[in-house]
Design a protein around this nucleic acid. Structure first.
Lengths: 247, 247
DNA sequence: CGCACACTTGACGAATCTCAAGAGCTGTGG
DNA sequence: CCACAGCTCTTGAGATTCGTCAAGTGTGCG
């Protein structure tokens, strides 16, 4: 078993890796102190479920470390991923106790959880939390709408390229910034990618092979991807080539 | 030219048809008074554009009457609808001046617009507006995610049934409530439906014909649809049959 | 060594798209 | 009043993409 995730994690909000990006980003010192009192950490192993759709959820929280997925499943088993939760993303809906989606850890995962009742009280009393949550929710809505375009109108090849581009963008810090080249580690199995993209895992596999054959990506191990030319990748995704790159 | 929309509309918030559902739903009398000062109405004819993606948008607002769509378009012309805006829905994003999507009136449309700067100021000063907007945004996010399942995993037939079910649900007031039967008026052309569903207009037409042939719907005019059995329709949509019906 | 698991590859078939023709409706102008 | 143009919508035939079913590869682990 690989242990890339740190075994220990921050108890003090000031040292937290997502301090300035998560729902607490705008909190002042005194507000953070209140949050400290109602928070606790939970870990999940890769593959483990965080909650099932319909379950009672008596916490709300942020992903601190690792990756989780939000999925919806039809009665006959067809599954669609509706969100990819990366560090700083928020889980749960204030005012709604029943989980609307399945949440699953796809890597080892650390979450910072807030007890529901006091957190919801705080939301009403301190505007900073609600403001930040609104902003994050609007961002998620934009992301969901971008994904609707991917699901509704892109070809299988474009879908794969779009997913790689999204992961590359959120991993931007890791890649060498010098020349539009990036390497990334896929946090998802082929099946999870298929569920995200509205494809079958066979089609995912075939299109990854095709992108490799055409030199758009270089595979070194099943999950490790090198992108020699990010502009090329984004063109394959059908996106405007100009957006999102460092000048 | 048909004139189903009222020619005059409320100037007084207290008589407004969306008073208790829109972004202003939770406002007190004094807050309404402030909104009255910064609001104005705009009308659009069916087919007219409200804003283009990338345009500067110096207002935010609510749909009062009529239907508008939110769409995204790729360079090669492929189009995906990412939102259907019905009365009470909110348009625009606080804090972002550039429109992210094309907004188009698909019927004659009345919007209640707020001047951006004073509205954003009010959002910071009065919690009721921000709270309500958060709630509405969370609802839209849920709707977008439900739509991701439709786009990614449903068949053409299920997609059509899903769209009809959504329209039927939001028109629930109109239908006879006695026996799970509903009639509805499609506010969209076949092409707009196709853009919503990630299909071609030919496939939309064929599937509507098929649902008609199978007795799931009855067409009286191209746009007027009678649904004899809403439970049947929802089963065709692949949804749980139990949700959403009056007991 | 063999099993489990994630992934790849191939052959075939089904669902959907593309291209094309035509039907039905509305408004316009002779 | 009729003919016609301009729409939206329908229907058909063939092409294409993607899904299904099935076999096979590679790696790690007991």
């Amino acid at each position: 078993m690989i242990r890339t995730q740190a075994l220990t994690f921050t108890q003090d909000c000031n040292d937290c890796p997502i301090r300035h990006r998560a729902v607490c980003a705008r909190c002042e010192t005194d507000e953070l102190a209140r949050l400290e009192e109602i928070k606790y950490y939970r870990r999940f192993e890769a593959g483990q479920s965080v909650v099932w759709s319909g379950d009672r959820m008596d916490f709300l929280g942020s992903v601190v470390n690792g990756v989780a997925t939000l999925t919806q499943t039809m009665e006959d088993g067809r599954t669609q991923m509706v969100g990819l939760l990366l560090p700083s993303d928020f889980v749960g809906r204030p005012g709604r106790v029943e989980a609307a989606y399945d949440v699953t850890a796809t890597t080892d995962l650390v979450m910072c959880c807030f007890r529901r009742a006091p957190f919801e009280r705080m939301m009403h009393e301190t505007p900073h939390i609600a403001q930040r949550l609104l902003e994050m929710t609007l961002d998620e809505l934009d992301a969901a709408r971008e994904w609707m375009l991917v699901l509704g109108r892109k070809t299988a090849r474009e879908k794969i390229a779009s997913l790689l581009a999204i992961i590359a963008r959120r991993n931007a810090l890791v890649g060498t910034a010098d020349d539009h080249a990036v390497t990334l580690e896929l946090p998802l199995t082929r099946e999870a990618m298929a569920d995200y993209l509205g494809l079958t895992l066979e089609t995912v596999s075939r299109q990854i092979s095709a992108l490799k054959r055409d030199g758009v990506i270089v595979l070194t191990g099943k999950r490790h991807v090198a992108v020699p030319d990010l502009v090329r990748l984004m063109a394959e995704a059908g996106d405007d080539t100009d957006g999102g790159l460092p000048a």
